[in-house]
Every structure is written in C-alpha cells, then in structure tokens.
Amino acid sequence: MSVVGFSHYFFLGLILFSIGALGALTRRNGITIFLSIELMLNSVNLILVSYASTNGNLAGQILVFFMFAIAAAEAAVGLAFFIAIYKHRRTINIDRLTFLRW
C-alpha cells in the first residue's frame, strides 16, 4: 500500500466510473446500461475502500459491505423490470421504450 498511493486507486476508480457513465449514457440496450451502472457502483466502492483503508478506519469496508447487499437487491429488481417490460413490449431497446410520458 505504501508504494501504490491512494491517488492511484482514486484515478483507477475515476476512470472506471467515467467508462461506466459513458456506457450508461450512450448504449441503447437496457442490460448493458444496467451493467455500466453496476460498473460505476463498483468503481465508487473501490475508491471508498481505498480511501478508508489509507485513513486506517474500517467504516469504508462496512459501507461497502452494505453496498453489496443493495447492489444485489437493485440488480434483482432491475432485471425483474426488464423481464416484465420484455414480456410486454418484446424489446428492451430503450429508444423504443418511451411510453412513460405525457
């Protein structure tokens, strides 16, 4: 840990986060967007853990521990949504899923 400072982890996390964001913003396929969001989530976890451990307290790890649970729940429900939408509209290409509007 001494050689590889916190900034390395931070930049890694940042890069991963931006890749995730780009993916989420540009992709058309619902699942891929979902994946990139998970990616963003993990990059944040990474930064959180690295920052916490450099400061020597364990709060970061505990927080990430809960993050996993939440990510799992979110993935489950999100995918359930996709299945429901698919059953209804036969597609999860979000460009065509614009029925939730005035």
Partner: peptide, 13 residues
Amino acid sequence: TTGNLRNYMLYFV
C-alpha cells in the same frame, strides 16, 4: 418529459 431514458440520464448528469 420525452419519455426517452437517455435524456433523463443526461439531465441527471
């Protein structure tokens, strides 16, 4: 409110 998810995300960001 165009219904297009991507727009919403962009506004979000």
